[in-house]
C-alpha cells in the first residue's frame, strides 16, 4: 500500500524500476514535488547539493557561469530525465548552474535524507550507486561526443 502518492510514479519511472517496493517507499519518503518558472534556477554552482531531481515536465539547461558574466550551456534535459549527482559524494556541492527554460515540474529528492537511508540500507545504496553510475556514464559519453564535434566534417558530396 503506497504511503505517498509518489510511490506509483517512482515505481514506473525507468530509473527506479525494478527496485524493491520497500526501497521505493524509502525514496518516496525523501521526495516532494516542486515547480520552477521559466528562468528560475534549480540550483547554482557552489551551493550545497541538497537535492537531485526527476524531471516530470519541462526543460532545463545545465550551464557553466563564466568570468565575463554570461553562461555557457553544456547540456539540456527534459521529461523523465535524472538531474544532479553531487548529492551523492563529497563535498556535496553543485558543480554547475541549472536553469529552467520553461515551466518545469520536478520531483525533488532530498540527498541528505536519502544518504542517511543508504547508510543504514546498503542494498538500497548499492542499487542507487549502480543507477547513478549509468547516468554518469551516459553523460560522460555525451560530453565526449560533443568534444568529437560530430558535425564538423562536411556531409555533402561536394
Amino acid at each position: 500500500m503506497p504511503t505517498t502518492n509518489l510511490e506509483p510514479y517512482l515505481a514506473k519511472h525507468s530509473f527506479f524500476s525494478g527496485l524493491d517496493p520497500a526501497d521505493i517507499e524509502e525514496i518516496a519518503g525523501c521526495a516532494k514535488n516542486a515547480a520552477f518558472k521559466a528562468g528560475e534556477y534549480l540550483f547554482k554552482q557552489g551551493e550545497n547539493a541538497e537535492f537531485f531531481f526527476v524531471l516530470r515536465e519541462g526543460h532545463v539547461v545545465v550551464e557553466v557561469p563564466t568570468a565575463r558574466g554570461h553562461s555557457i550551456e553544456i547540456s539540456s534535459l527534459g521529461e523523465n530525465q535524472i538531474l544532479g549527482w553531487s548529492w551523492l559524494m563529497p563535498p556535496y556541492k553543485y558543480q554547475f548552474d541549472c536553469r529552467a527554460l520553461k515551466q518545469t515540474k520536478v520531483l525533488e529528492i532530498d540527498g541528505r535524507c536519502l544518504r542517511g537511508k543508504c547508510e543504514s540500507n546498503p542494498r538500497l545504496g548499492y542499487e542507487l550507486i549502480k543507477r547513478f553510475a549509468r547516468v554518469m556514464t551516459n553523460r560522460l559519453q555525451e560530453t565526449r561526443l560533443q568534444l568529437l564535434d560530430l558535425y564538423g566534417a562536411p556531409a555533402d558530396r561536394s
Binding site: I72, E73, I74, S75, E142, Q146, D149, L150
Partner: peptide, 15 residues
C-alpha cells in the same frame, strides 16, 4: 552542441 545565450532549445549531440 554549442549553444548561444539566445538559444532556448536543446543542448548536446543529437544521438
Amino acid at each position: 552542441d554549442r549553444a548561444t545565450e539566445r538559444w532556448r532549445g536543446h543542448v548536446g549531440v543529437v544521438t
